[in-house]
Design a protein around this nucleic acid. Structure first.
Lengths: 185, 185
DNA sequence: ACCTGAACACCGTTCAAGT
DNA sequence: ACCTGAACACCGTTCAAGT
């Protein structure tokens, strides 16, 4: 990233310290306070706020790579599988992220909101759109399903109550969604 | 309610003052602080906390009647319409609640969580179950869909971004869900 | 039996002062 | 140009003291 290069050396170091401390803190407790993260990072509160003006921005910074992996996975799956199989596998992967307790729930929620910082929202929608378009092209689903609609619908994935039944419930609901997508075909 | 009758007269009055103040406060701002609500109700903070130990409990108290109306609506609709039509109308109503900005989003979220205070969760699941069972009985949908699954899935209704497109988006997604329920029939 | 409201620990956010 | 950290206003929650 060019933006990162332009930072002064100490600023760059602080940024990495904050991200590292936040990663640990969120893993232990998704609601960790920003002040406590700043302290753990050995950094003034104001420094954290300049690097990450909002809580969402910080969470997004922490999970940037994970989200990118998810986005990159869509075209990769489409190369190796039939569209609806790729869709299914991608949704399983999304559900997997939803189930980890790293507080990634919040980030995906943030990634789902077409907010100002939505550098992540766009790519997520695009990934889903690729999957939809591939299935449409083969006539597997009726055309016209909106990728943003689907992303909104998929929000249930990170609200599944944790526990041994979580995976089965996710599977059942993904089945229902895919059936809905096929629209009677 | 027998419990309410057993309250001392002043306690009963305070309870009503709190609910009334909370209703107004939440209408203006769903994130209104509990202290500010206690002050607006002319009541000590401790009093609010004894009546409603958690924020959820207070929000639930405020919207108790609205939720009850929604629950009662399911059997009423089933008497006058075919099961899938009743389902559709009920979901429209649910979406309508989701769209009002009264902070009812929070309450429905609370009503969806099988939490300790779930006096509302049970009835909501039951209402959905009635709609599902009626459709199953006529073979309109395959048997076995779990009402709790469906309620979880429906969470998108109160996360629809407000605006002129909200209604249309809700309609599209409800269509998709109903198609998914029908499972190819 | 119920209520009050000061007090506590903590939160997000800002900003003067430093380097 | 960037950082520090005290300070501010506010939060949820508790609990001794009242009636």
């Amino acid at each position: 990233m060019t933006e990162e290069e332009r930072l002064r050396a100490d600023a760059q170091l602080n940024r990495e310290r904050i991200l590292s401390a936040a990663r640990e803190a969120f893993a232990a407790n998704p609601d960790a306070s920003l002040n406590s993260i700043a302290k753990a990072a050995g950094v003034g509160a104001g420094t954290l706020y300049r690097h990450f003006p909002t809580r969402e921005a910080l969470v997004l910074g922490v999970y940037r790579h994970e989200i990118q992996q998810l986005v990159d996975l869509a075209p990769a799956l489409l190369e190796q599988h039939a569209p609806l199989v790729a869709m299914r596998l991608w949704l399983d992967r999304l559900a997997h992220y939803g189930r980890m307790k790293y507080g990634i729930n919040d980030v995906l929620h943030a990634a789902m909101t077409p907010s100002v910082l939505g550098q992540t929202y766009g790519p997520m929608v695009e990934a889903i759109d690729q999957l939809l378009k591939a299935a449409e092209a083969l006539g597997l689903i009726p055309p016209g399903t909106d990728a943003e609609d689907l992303l909104l619908l998929l929000g249930f994935l990170w609200r599944i109550p944790p526990g041994p039944r979580a995976t089965a419930q996710a599977d059942r609901l993904i089945d229902l969604v895919i059936t809905g997508l096929k629209g009677g075909r």
